[in-house]
Design a binder for these strands. Sequence first.
DNA 1: GCTTGACAGATAATCGATTATTCTCATATT
DNA 2: AATATGAGAATAATCGATTATCTGTCAAGC
Lengths: 245, 245
Amino acid sequence: MDASDDGARGALTEEDAPSAAFADDGKNTIGSQLASRLREAIISGELEAGSKINLDRARKTFNVSLSPLREGLARLISDGLVEFQDNRGYRVAPISIGNLEEVTTLREELEVFALRESIRVGDVEWEGNIMRALHRLNRTERDAARPETLEYWETLHREFHLTLISGCGKPLLLHFCNLLLNLNDRYRRAFLVRTSGDRNVGQEHSEIAQGAVARDVEYACEKLRQHIHRTGTNLRNHLATKGVV
Amino acid sequence: MDASDDGARGALTEEDAPSAAFADDGKNTIGSQLASRLREAIISGELEAGSKINLDRARKTFNVSLSPLREGLARLISDGLVEFQDNRGYRVAPISIGNLEEVTTLREELEVFALRESIRVGDVEWEGNIMRALHRLNRTERDAARPETLEYWETLHREFHLTLISGCGKPLLLHFCNLLLNLNDRYRRAFLVRTSGDRNVGQEHSEIAQGAVARDVEYACEKLRQHIHRTGTNLRNHLATKGVV
DNA sequence: GCTTGACAGATAATCGATTATTCTCATATT
DNA sequence: AATATGAGAATAATCGATTATCTGTCAAGC
């Protein structure tokens, strides 16, 4: 499941890194469960970007009372997926080309920095986790005809990117990267059914991973930067096609 | 007042940048007011780092009901000042040397990047705002004997740093920097009554500001980086002295 | 002596009802 | 015609009470 779905929700210092399965992954309270469901609903595009969230309607849709609903929504604010204004309620964070460009730029800056740090201080276990995540990702088919494979691929893809930087030992930085990845995934799941023909994404991932475990900082970081940049460019073109400003 | 105290609380895309006074700055709801009061209480050290927040006691202390109290606390989670765990409630985010070092490192990375971008795209109004913020800061006495002057100085200092990077045109980046500045200020207000003798902080600020408005990217960025780094080093020494791990 | 389990008190989470605010739209006014 | 006003509906915020969960203590069993 999504690494950010841990039942134990901390603050910015929480453990955002992907980790081995939790037998009992918490999610005890209705508020927590709602946060997960809403997060998935927003990232998957089920809830339209920019739309207002009517509390009363949402209350009925999810069969919950107001308190846990507000609780869940409040958490998504820190994820950047929901906006809030006093007395005007909540709305799904809007999307825009400007926002996508900023997310891409910051990913280039922060994820690359986190990878650099990971290569510097990451241990052997970190290396192993990368190889595992890469293998699982590249062995998974991404068939546009079957949405469930797409979602599974997204999960693994996200896991791969988080694993890459999980060795850096900087919880705050990982938190920021996690947020950015969330925001980015929303764009991809909304607009990118298939990758553009001139890319071999699987090979890109392999190159990054091999550079990382070989501790070749410059190679790995440059490959990661290009990978993020290309995705950003592709997405921007798709958005422009669909008339998003 | 604190720039992050806007009544209108948005998500990560909100306007975190400092701006001229709001005649009516909102803060309509009890939840919002509480968020501000609690934020100040935590940053100023009034609420001890790492301590548990008993909801019932807090409810009585602030004379509010449970719902707005939870609302206010939830917002501080996204600020990284409060941590939360299902069924175990809220606690003030702990401090540690490790966290301080990460905050410092990320400030060096992100604030410097934001300054670089600001110098690249900032307009004349941005330049003017810097000179104004610098003037107000350097004209304000920082008298350790009078706490109210310290607090006022902190406000202006924060305003100066946010103004420096306010021209970058990247709301998400500004949000991250705002969070980091919050976390950093908590350490300073707790541990740094006076700056160490070998520094002339006023001059450091002046050099950064002059470099920025002169559009000398490398000079300004290097000065800012050193400024942040020195503060980090000073704080770490103070923490170590007081036995913080 | 150590572990396990039941109990009680403390604490957090949730609910349904109430109050306050904003929004809508028809009407009045310049 | 454009703008201002105000009543009523829609919606958000808050409250007090109730329910669920956890934490620490102490006794029974191994």
